[in-house]
């Protein structure tokens, strides 16, 4: 060992300049991080400002309430009513969630409670694949597979069996609320399943074991321990899935039929908030038309924000 006690290499000789530059670096770094963090706020503000600035003239003209409740949409005559789109968005989302929630719950139970360990990963992977498929590809598949199937098989059968209900009356067109809702169901399924899985994983092992210790069967353990403990989280999954469905654009635009009317039958064609924006924004000729579409966007934004915030509160913060 030949380490003489040399004078400390840098310190005693270090000019104060270095200390100064160190602090500047730290200050700049913190400033950058703060800017990036506040960028998230800025982004939210920006979204609101841009939407509001575009939409305000229109919301002033007929008034917000009139805008939301009128069902007349005629861009050429500059008459703008949002009701058909709000209606279509709600109906398709409701169909999607009603269809997907039980299935998503079943998938989550299968993965967490039923499947042997070796099967869990491949099933989880397959469900994740569903969420990786771009929305426009779902639209294509829906257009050429689901719509003909509905038109020729499902809707005639439903009409014959339940046609006395307004919900299932009318000609089987294929394109319409049901088609959009069904494909939406496939698209929100992975969200519902993965959030449910996450929620069920938080059930304490002790709770499960004490139910087993009482002599419960596996299903009774699920019913008595797993489901009650997960209830608010599962409602959160439901709300989150609904939020997803509300904002989904392309598949709905390709399948809902694009008719700005308020249909009471699931077989009828309709329109949704997101899909009318997608279809008309690029060709909107007048400021009023752009403004009306932006106002629809504002409605969509506020509704999805509300749903997401509610879902976050219900699912709870499990991050460290």
């Amino acid at each position: 060992m030949s380490m003489a006690h040399t004078a400390p290499l840098a310190m005693s000789g270090a000019p104060p300049r270095r200390a100064g530059s160190v602090r500047t670096g730290d200050r700049l770094w913190r400033l950058f991080l703060l800017a990036a963090g506040c960028g998230v706020f800025l982004l939210t503000a920006l979204i609101l400002i841009v939407l509001a600035r575009l939409a305000l003239p229109v919301l002033h003209q007929p008034g917000t309430w009139a805008f939301l409740t009128s069902s007349d949409w005629d861009p050429v005559a500059e008459s703008f009513g949002a009701l058909p789109f709000v209606w279509g968005t709600l109906v398709t989302s409701a169909v999607a969630v009603v269809l997907a929630f039980p299935v998503g719950l079943g998938v989550a139970l299968f993965i967490t409670e039923v499947a042997p360990t070796w099967l869990r990963r491949p099933v989880t992977f397959a469900i994740e694949l569903l969420s990786a498929v771009p929305s426009v590809v779902y639209g294509l598949w829906g257009l050429f597979i689901v719509v003909p199937w509905l038109r020729e098989t499902v809707e005639p059968a439903l009409g014959a069996a339940l046609g006395f209900l307004p919900l299932f009356s009318g000609p089987p067109l294929g394109l319409g609320y049901l088609a959009a809702g069904l494909v939406l169901a496939v698209m929100v399924l992975p969200t519902l399943a993965s959030v449910s899985i996450e929620v069920m994983r938080t059930v304490p092992a002790g709770l499960r074991e004490s139910a087993y210790a009482l002599g419960a069967t596996q299903w009774e353990v699920v019913r008595l321990a797993v489901l009650p403990h997960s209830r608010s989280g599962l409602v959160g999954a439901l709300v989150l899935g609904t939020g997803r469905a509300l904002g989904e654009t392309m598949a709905v635009a390709m399948l809902i039929g694009n008719a700005p009317s308020v249909g009471t039958s699931l077989f009828a064609p309709g329109y949704s908030l997101a899909s009318v924006i997608a279809n008309e924004f690029a060709e909107a000729g007048s400021d009023a038309h752009v403004g009306a579409l932006a106002a629809l966007g504002l409605v969509l934004f506020l509704v999805t924000i509300a749903f997401n915030a509610a879902a976050r509160l219900l699912i709870g913060r499990r991050q460290p």
Partner: peptide, 11 residues
């Protein structure tokens, strides 16, 4: 004053 904790930690 003027003592930089970063520089101190090198000593």
């Amino acid at each position: 004053p003027g003592v930089d904790p970063v520089a101190l930690r090198r000593r």
